[in-house]
Design a protein around this nucleic acid. Structure first.
Lengths: 260, 260
DNA sequence: GCAATAGTGTCTCTGAGACACTATGAG
DNA sequence: CTCATAGTGTCTCAGAGACACTATTGC
């Protein structure tokens, strides 16, 4: 119950303007992608992967010239999620990617322009969607930064804090949900999956990764072997001489518990 | 980067008032508690527990007379979290309880008073903190509802949706974090813990709960046996003739993973 | 004895964890 | 032959899952 306007009794005499109201409610979006780079032309080896984040160089006051997260003000006719999706479309030209709200930033003084409450989302975008953009745009104003570089910079507003929080969040999600699929083709080898997980969560080390993922009944549910129309198991030798089983994610959502 | 005010170049000519701005940014709080009721005076048995949520009957337009979540408008000089904490204090008189932000609600038209973006928190409050209040207040205006009853009602605004989301969220948190401790004394028996979990997540059934919690090395870390100054293990026979080992939560935060 | 909670005994089967070993096939 | 990836063999130990059984003690 919003209870400050206590004296108000009906619509006719209600006016929100009696109170100080926010000067804006933007959304800011931490756009993550994983870039891949072949290690040698024609060589069969897994590519090098790197987690990157998209930043924009500000043109205007405040923080003019500094790098910032993409975002923009929400309009009255849209929800915050719609706003984020619109901004994402404007910045990257992509729709239908994983876009998730994770926190609100409202510390007094966080924005010199006034009382501005920012709603932070993260987006997980496959690099194929960003390839066009890179060529199209002036690389001086919009570009991908390796996550380490982005963290070391002083970003505009409280965006360094937001980026840090977003990173913590996707690391947790990478281990507890199937968001890895956002960075993979529909069908992939277990080597690729392991590499994607490690790109986001470097601490994750599992010597017996293949053994566990293929043998554990409880974990098995999230993956299934890819097969062609005749039921033959599909293999790939793109990254190795010995061909590897291809897998795909199922729709199964595992339920985790600390109590067994 | 908030990029709509493109023409603006510095502080002196900047004015957020050029744009339509929100009419308010409140926080709404879903206050959960678990009530306990002894089954018979003097009888040694676990109490009956029930998950409850605190609602407030609205006095003013809009939704006058309907039940709603407690909450209130955020001021310019406070963060959204500060606002929620303040409102919680005003409604329940308690500080230092678990208070967690979980989502923003911004669908156009969600509030007849205008463009109002609500920030939803949930609070987990031990019933001992609410005991005074129940006696003090006019029970007609503020009261606890069993969760089932609250869900069946049509609440003000989109509060039914918010409540539903909050419930999903604490069910997930109950299984994946140690929030159960918010509803328990510092030292408790495993029977009590099991009962609290089941009160929030009725689907949780674990015949061998004690066996698993005491034997699994990986789960063991979250609990430790209570002991007195001399190192003797502390027991309780409050709920049974045979006395039971008391446990407490440790500070250990388990890391969950779907990949092993 | 009964009631209500708090455990333990005993079984089988599966998985975790370690680490060396084999498999593939182009260059 | 090598290299890089993709597995398998084999071992031990721990835990899961089931369910009957014992333990405690006021009434």
């Amino acid at each position: 119950m919003e209870n400050e306007p206590n004296e108000i009794e009906n619509a006719s005499n209600y006016s929100a303007a009696k109170y100080r109201t926010p000067d804006g409610a933007p959304s800011d979006i931490v756009i993550f992608t994983i870039t891949t780079r072949e290690r040698a032309a024609g060589k069969k080896a897994l590519p090098e992967r790197e987690l990157q984040v998209l930043l924009i160089k500000r043109k205007n006051w405040p923080f003019e010239g500094q790098w910032a997260l993409p975002g923009g003000f929400c309009g009255e006719e849209e929800s915050m999620y719609d706003c984020a999706r619109r901004e994402l479309m404007e910045e990257t030209g992509v729709a239908d990617v994983h876009l998730e709200y994770f926190n609100v930033y409202s510390e007094p003084g966080r924005d010199p322009r006034g009382w501005i409450i920012s709603h932070a989302f993260f987006a997980l975008v496959h690099e194929r969607y960003l390839a066009d953009r890179e060529a199209r745009d002036d690389a001086a104003d919009v570009r991908l930064f390796p996550i380490r570089e982005a963290l070391e910079q002083k970003l505009a507003f409280d965006h360094s804090r937001i980026l840090r929080d977003a990173l913590d969040k996707i690391r947790e999600s990478m281990m507890t949900t199937t968001i890895a699929k956002q960075f993979l083709p529909d069908e992939f080898t277990l080597g690729e999956l392991y590499q994607v997980i490690r790109t986001v969560v470097p601490d994750f080390e599992e010597q017996n990764f293949i053994r566990k993922i293929t043998s554990t009944r409880s974990r098995q549910g999230i993956l299934e072997e890819a097969a062609d129309e005749r039921g033959e198991r599909k293999m790939s030798n793109r990254y190795s001489q010995r061909s590897a089983q291809l897998y795909r994610f199922t729709d199964y959502v595992p339920k985790l518990s600390i109590y067994g």
